[in-house]
Design a protein around this nucleic acid. Structure first.
Lengths: 199, 199
DNA sequence: AGAAATACGGAGAGGTTCTCCGTTTCGCGT
DNA sequence: ACGCGAAACGGAGAACCTCTCCGTATTTCT
């Protein structure tokens, strides 16, 4: 009596509990496994660790990048949340610089996992992460542009692509020195060259 | 009677003919197959097309990237030859810009194959390609630096890494517009920002 | 409780990488 | 010219991977 659809969509069945449970287990297992073996880790292995069949994995995440995206989703959300804070606390270009550094670190610490997801995602379904990141970048960039501390002809897409490129090409270097330098170079370009060198 | 080692290393047997023949066949087949199917193409398929067993393929090229490197070797050699010509024919920074554009095009048209090889190569054995490219870049870069048209704190390694990054991150985009823009941006940075924008 | 809908699991098809070792081929000394 | 031994060949096969299919089990709703 009236226990039907308690807060759910009227015409539809409630989502099953095991579905949510399995999804969470899969994401946890994937997080662990990707961390150990990189983004190429075996999906079978992930299913095994999650204690579910491979069919279940594929039903939940049809492609590898869908799973990558799910794993990254939290971190990406956090990362993009940072953008808001920086925007409030820092000057336009300090905020942009700081966030891009954080983004690069993020992409690198995930062994290019972030980059991989973003790249594959362009033609797949994890548009959420992609969009979230672009929006964060756009927010910071346009503010800097309005203040004249970033070149006006730069799009958020290009900026992100450039940083993703750095992350990808330096992904197997554990040392962050080079990627830091490269980002510094890019930032100089972004700001229309405030100064020539810095060392 | 003294037909031994005609021009070869004294203590060693001459390289067999079938070895060279198979090697060439493999490279030709790989060239073809990579062009069709990208750098992830099946190595079995390549061996099949070359008319040799898979064991032979693996004996000649222990890793995928060794094969990639061999395939690229010619093109890389050509590419690096271009550097010499540009160096003779153009101003320091025109030469650098032109060559970097060629390098980017090269990396992109090989479906990130060049980038992949360079990246994997860092820890593998195709150091030749890597070194060749670095030397070409170094030659052009230091000339520009001496003339003051390129920032002095830039290393060839960083420059190449940056361009490889662009190639990698835009690899699946068939359209060259974005990668052109990104390279332009990087070049602005390299030249210490001759001008702010260009659109 | 019973029915209907939904998700589960894991066997298995088809693909891949890479190894191993019996067989074949080639270069060299005689 | 010929035979020997080193070196390379080939391809079967082990071990792995992705992804599908469908009989079975679980859960929700009435």
């Amino acid at each position: 009596m009236m226990t039907a659809t308690p807060g759910g969509i009227p015409g539809e069945r409630r989502q099953r509990n095991d579905v949510r449970r399995n999804r969470e287990r899969l994401i946890a297992a994937a997080q662990e496994t990707f961390a150990e073996a990189g983004p190429e880790a075996s999906l079978n292995e992930i299913a095994r660790r999650a204690g579910v069949g491979s069919g279940t994995l594929y039903r939940h995440f049809p492609t590898r990048s869908a799973l990558l995206a799910a794993v990254l989703s939290d971190r990406v959300r956090t990362l993009c949340g940072t953008a808001e804070k920086l925007r409030a606390a820092e000057s336009a270009d300090d905020a942009l610089d700081a966030w891009l550094r954080a983004f690069l670190a993020h992409a690198r610490t995930n062994q290019g996992l972030g980059g991989a997801a973003i790249l594959e995602g362009a033609d797949a379904l994890d548009l959420d992460c992609h969009r979230l990141i672009l929006e964060a970048a756009a927010g910071l960039l346009t503010r800097a542009q309005r203040q004249g501390t970033a070149r006006a002809d730069l799009t958020p897409e290009d900026l992100i692509q450039l940083v993703v490129g750095i992350a990808l090409s330096t992904a197997r270097n554990d040392d962050t020195e080079q990627s830091d330098r490269l980002l510094g170079l890019v930032l100089d370009a972004v700001h229309g060259a405030r100064g020539g060198g810095h060392g």
